[in-house]
Simulated scan of single mutants.
Amino acid sequence: MTKELWLNLPVKNLKKSKEFFTKIGFSFKNREMENMIAMEVGEKKVAVMLLDESTFKNAAQNEITDTNQSSEILISFDAESREEVDELAQKAEAAGGTVFGKPSEIQGWMYGCGFTDLDGHRWNALYMEMSKMPQG
């Protein structure tokens, strides 16, 4: 059965994408290929593969979504604190991304922000106060 999970994202420029994600705090595996790099996310080190657009298109055997017109995925991850959410929003913007959802309280038990990377993929950073999560 399934041993690992990887997400694959098309990017226009691998070097610039790596710089962006490094600036906001993500790390990369040492193995790099000409057409893809592996980013590690979270304690479980989920792999987010950044593939140049032609490699992605070949693998997916489909057109790439125009992220200026629509979204195919919203990648959400947890933050350790409200302050980390605020910092991520600032870092994403400073690194060339766009904050589309400024840091704010959500449903009384989450605090989050939304930003896009250099290729328009949408990311959602959330700090969740589980003790305040509605029961039911």
Rank of each mutant, 00 (worst) to 15 (best):
T2D: 07
E4D: 12
L5S: 08
W6P: 02
L7T: 07
L7G: 09
L9D: 04
P10Y: 11
P10K: 10
V11Y: 03
K15M: 05
K16A: 14
F20Q: 00
F20E: 00
F21G: 00
I24S: 01
I24G: 00
F26M: 11
S27N: 13
S27A: 12
F28Y: 13
F28V: 12
K29E: 13
N30D: 12
E34F: 04
A38E: 08
M39H: 03
M39D: 02
M39L: 14
V41I: 12
G42P: 05
E43G: 06
V46R: 04
V48D: 01
L50K: 08
T55M: 12
N58F: 09
A59M: 14
A60I: 04
N62W: 04
N62T: 10
I64V: 12
T67L: 05
Q69S: 14
Q69M: 14
S71I: 14
E72D: 13
I73S: 11
I75N: 06
F77S: 04
D78C: 03
S81V: 10
R82Y: 02
E84H: 08
Q90N: 09
Q90L: 08
Q90S: 11
A92K: 00
A94E: 10
A95H: 06
G97D: 00
G97Y: 00
T98G: 01
G101M: 15
S104I: 03
G108F: 04
N124P: 05
A125R: 02
L126C: 06
L126N: 10
M128Y: 03
M128T: 15
E129Q: 15
M130A: 14
M130V: 13
S131M: 11
